[in-house]
């Protein structure tokens, strides 16, 4: 066990700012449909910048904070190794390629949006994106199947946002404390 730990520590590396930028640039290029699983593989398994526990701890913190989880995660990882410079390098690396691609696609769409082929292409992409969202919602909801309180809160939130079209912030401010209290009281 001691030997294994020593080996793990020995192969762990502290990445340079350039390595952080390139790593997250590559992640941004290949992360279709979500980057988090790929981020774990890169930072923990391939490059050994973090241990599995460190990754999970950082992810928990980043999920609790507002903003995109993976953006928060990239900033946290960059900050951990190279301070503010590292944080900017990671965030910039992560968003550079997707932003460029989206801007290029936007220009193409703006120019050819009246072309029936392009309209059909985007209709197909929209259907795929909707399916990805439904799939994510099912994955997120699955752990709640044996928790009636969780199901009730999730259903209330769905009705408030999707049916009654209430604002997200007040809905969260009301439902989050109710959910916490109900879980403490009945769970």
């Amino acid at each position: 066990m001691t030997i294994a730990l020593t080996e793990t520590q020995a192969v762990r590396r502290h990445p340079s700012v350039a390595e952080l930028f390139v790593g997250f640039l590559q992640l941004g290029l290949i992360g279709f449909g979500g980057v988090l699983p790929l981020a774990r593989r890169m930072t923990v398994e391939q490059r050994r910048w973090l241990t599995g526990e460190e990754f999970t701890e950082l992810l928990s913190l980043c999920q609790f904070l507002p903003g995109g989880n993976i953006i928060n995660m990239s900033v946290a990882i960059g900050l951990k190794f190279r301070g503010m410079t590292g944080a900017f390098a990671c965030a910039l690396g992560l968003i550079a390629a997707p932003s460029t691609i989206v801007i290029a696609l936007g220009v193409v769409y703006d120019r050819f949006q009246d072309d029936p082929h392009i309209r059909h292409l985007f209709a197909g992409l929209a259907a795929a994106a909707a399916a990805l969202l439904v799939s994510t919602a099912i994955k997120i909801a699955a752990p709640l199947r044996n928790e009636p309180i969780g199901i009730a809160i999730a259903s209330l939130c769905f009705v408030a946002i999707a049916v009654l079209r209430l604002l997200l912030l007040p809905t969260m401010l009301v439902l989050a404390p109710i959910s916490a209290l109900a879980t403490l009281r009945f769970a």
Partner: peptide, 18 residues
């Protein structure tokens, strides 16, 4: 929107659309 995106970007998609 980024300030209320607790849990990730998917949480704010309905609010973004509205």
């Amino acid at each position: 929107l980024s300030l209320i995106a607790f849990g990730g970007g998917n949480a704010i998609l309905p609010e973004m659309e509205r």
